[in-house]
Design a protein around this nucleic acid. Structure first.
Length: 507
RNA sequence: CGGGAUGUAGCGCAGUCCGGUUAGCGCGCUCGGUUCGGGACCGAGAAGUCGGAGGUUCAAAUCCUCUCAUCCCGACCA
C-alpha cells in the first residue's frame, strides 16, 4: 500500500484526537495505566521529562529565595475543616484513611481494623498542613517572608482520568509563602506566575496566556487565582499552572500571626502556587504530530539518537568504532544549561525500525552512521521537526556546532509553531450567534476539531458564565492581563462590559 | 452516581444472535535463512483459566442468573 502516507501513530490527530493522544504516550513509552484505578505508572522516558521539569524549575525557585521542605502526606480532618470554602471545594475528591490495620478475616482474606480516632485525609493540596507548621515558624515580621516549596505527590479522587492530564495520584510542586502585607504577597503571587510562564516558553516551547480566573474557577479559599493557559492542537485550553493569592484566609484558619513593625499582632498574608505532571500532557499535545512525540531539546531526556548501519559483523565493528568518535564529541557537553545526552542504538533491528523508534520517542536529532559516512568523514543528521526522510550529511569536523545550532533551531521552531497555531485559532467575537457557531461542531455525533480561543466581552455576571457553559461546554479560561480597555457588550446577555475574557473548551 | 457499550494469547480483534470435533486471525515474541541508509521477506514454532461464580444441557466462548472490571457520554477537576 502507500507506504509514504503511513503515519507512525494511528489514528491521526484529525481522525480521533483523544485516541491519538493515548497512542503517542504508548508509542513513546512515557507512561501506562496501572492496576490501580486512575493511577499511572510513569516510565523512564516520561519520568526523565518530569525530572528535567523539576531541575529547571527548582533552580528558578532557589534563585528567587525559595527553599525546599517536606510535609506529611496525611492531613487530619480537623485541619482541613478550618477553611470553609477550602473544604467545600475539595470534599468530593478526598481519599480518606480511616483504619490503621489489617486482620485475618477467617476466610483467607483480610479485613480492616484499628479505626482511627480522627480520619486522615491524603493531601489533595497542602495549605492546611503546611499552615500548621507556618503558624509555629512565624512570630515576627523579621521571620518574613517565608518562602517554601515542596515537591510531592497528591491525591484527588477524580471521576474520569487521563494519563498525565488528570490522574488520581499525581506529582507536583507546591510553593507556599508567607508575607508581611498585601503588596508583598500579591507581588509574590504574580512573580511566580511569571516564573511559570517563562519556564513554559523557554523550556517547554509552550506559549501561554497569563490571566486571572473568574470566581467560579478560583481555587477554593483563595482571594485571587492566576493561571497560565495554553492551547492544545485540538484547540482546547489546558490550564498549565496556577498561582493563588490567599489573602489572610488561610492565615486565619491556621493562626499564622506575627508581631508587625508597630508591635501589634497581625495575621500574615499567604500565597500558594503549583504545576504538576500535567505539564507533560501539555508538552505532548502542543508539539507532537502524527508520527509521535516531539520534544523540545531543553526538556528532552536525550538529544541524539545514534543509529549505526551495517550489513555484517565486520562492518558493524568498524561502524561502531566510528560511532564512538561521535559520542565522544558530546561527553559532558552542555546545550545552554542542559546536559546533552546521546543514545547509541545498535540493537539488532533494521535501521528504519530503529529510526522510527526514535521518531516516536520525540528525540530532537537522529544521526545515521554507515559505511558511506565513514568514507566521507561525515554523518547523516535528521531533525525531529522535519519530515522523517529529510536528512543531511554533516562533516564530523562541523558536527558539534551543527548539533548545537540545530537544537536551538528546533527549540525555537516548536515555540513558533505553537504560537502561530494559537494565533491562527484565536479570534475576537462580538456577536452572540457567531460565538455559538464558533463553538458548535459541524458533526454533533463525532465532533471534529473546532473552536479555539474566543476573546469576547463578559459582564462579570456568573449567570452568563454558567449559561455559556451549559449551552456550549465553553468556559472562561481567564481574564487575560494583557488587553486594552475596550467598551463592549457581554457576549451572553448583551449588557455593557469593559473587559474581554478568553472563552474556550478546556481539559 | 445516572445513560450506553465491551471483557477471547503480550496487543488489536473475529467467533456469541442460531450451543456441536483440536477456539481462529493480524501484529508482537522465539528459532533458521535471505535482507539492511523509507517501518524487510520466507519458513518453522511457542503462547489461551474465552473476566469471575453459579445454573441449564449429552455438550457452553455461545443460553440464563449474579458478580467484577474497563471504556465512552453526563455531573466533578491541576
Amino acid at each position: 500500500m502507500s507506504k509514504q502516507k503511513r503515519t507512525a501513530i494511528e489514528p491521526t490527530r484529525e481522525q480521533n484526537y483523544a485516541e491519538w493522544y493515548q497512542q503517542v504516550i504508548k508509542a513513546a513509552d512515557l507512561a501506562e495505566n496501572s492496576e490501580v484505578r486512575g493511577c499511572m505508572v510513569i516510565k523512564p522516558w516520561g519520568y526523565a521529562i518530569w525530572e528535567n521539569i523539576q531541575r529547571a524549575l527548582d533552580e528558578r525557585f532557589y534563585e528567587s529565595g525559595h527553599r525546599n521542605a517536606y510535609f506529611p502526606i496525611f492531613i487530619p480532618k480537623s485541619f482541613f475543616e478550618k477553611e470553609a470554602e477550602h473544604v467545600e471545594g475539595f470534599a468530593k475528591e478526598c481519599a480518606v484513611v480511616t483504619h490503621s490495620r489489617l486482620e485475618d478475616n477467617g476466610e483467607g482474606g483480610l479485613k480492616v481494623a484499628g479505626e482511627l480516632t480522627e480520619p486522615l485525609i491524603v493531601r489533595p493540596t497542602s495549605e492546611t498542613i503546611i499552615g500548621a507548621s507556618f503558624a509555629k515558624w512565624v512570630n515576627s515580621y523579621r521571620d518574613l517572608p517565608l518562602l517554601i516549596n515542596q515537591w510531592a505527590n497528591i491525591v484527588r479522587w477524580e471521576m474520569r482520568t487521563r494519563l498525565f492530564l488528570r490522574t488520581t495520584e499525581f506529582l507536583w510542586q507546591e510553593g507556599h509563602t508567607v508575607h508581611e502585607n498585601y503588596e508583598d504577597a500579591m507581588l509574590e503571587t504574580r512573580k511566580m506566575l511569571d516564573v511559570y510562564a517563562n519556564f513554559a516558553a523557554e523550556y517547554l516551547a509552550l506559549p501561554v496566556i497569563k490571566g486571572e480566573k473568574t470566581d467560579s474557577e478560583r481555587f477554593p479559599g483563595a482571594v485571587n487565582t492566576y493561571c497560565i493557559e495554553a492551547m492544545m492542537q485540538d484547540k482546547k485550553a489546558l490550564q498549565s499552572g496556577t498561582s493563588h493569592f490567599l489573602g489572610q484566609n488561610f492565615a486565619k484558619a491556621s493562626e499564622i500571626k506575627f508581631q508587625n513593625r508597630e508591635g501589634e499582632m497581625e495575621y500574615a498574608w499567604t500565597t500558594s502556587w503549583g504545576v504538576s505532571t500535567r505539564l507533560i500532557g501539555a508538552l505532548i499535545m502542543a508539539h507532537s504530530d502524527d508520527n509521535g512525540l516531539a520534544l523540545p531539546p531543553k526538556i528532552a531526556p536525550s538529544h541524539l539518537a545514534i543509529i549505526p548501519i551495517y550489513r555484517d559483523e565486520e562492518e558493524k565493528k568498524e561502524v561502531l568504532k566510528y560511532c564512538k568518535r561521535i559520542t565522544d564529541l558530546f561527553v559532558k557537553d552542555y546545550f545552554e544549561d542542559v546536559r546533552v545526552y546521546t543514545e547509541l542504538d545498535d540493537r539488532d533491528l533494521t535501521s528504519s525500525e530503529r529510526n522510527w523508534y526514535w521518531i516516536k520517542k520525540g528525540i530532537p536529532l537522529r544521526i545515521e552512521i554507515g559505511p558511506r559516512d565513514i568514507a566521507s568523514e561525515a554523518v547523516m543528521v535528521a531533525r525531529r521537526d522535519k519530515e522523517p526522510r529529510d536528512k543531511q550529511s554533516v562533516p564530523i569536523s562541523e558536527l558539534h556546532s551543527f548539533v548545537h545550532k540545530s537544537l536551538r533551531e528546533i527549540q525555537d521552531a516548536y515555540y513558533q509553531r505553537a504560537l502561530e497555531f494559537r494565533k491562527a485559532n484565536t479570534i475576537k467575537i462580538d456577536d452572540k450567534a457567531e460565538f455559538y457557531r464558533f463553538f458548535t461542531p459541524q458533526n454533533q455525533n463525532q465532533p471534529e476539531i473546532h473552536g479555539g480561543f474566543a476573546h469576547s466581552h463578559w459582564c462579570q455576571d456568573p449567570a452568563c458564565e454558567e449559561q455559556i457553559k451549559n449551552d456550549l461546554k465553553v468556559t472562561i479560561r481567564c481574564i487575560p492581563f494583557e488587553q486594552e480597555e475596550e467598551e463592549g457588550h457581554c457576549i451572553c446577555c448583551g449588557k455593557a462590559a469593559k473587559t474581554r475574557v478568553i472563552f474556550a473548551k478546556s481539559y
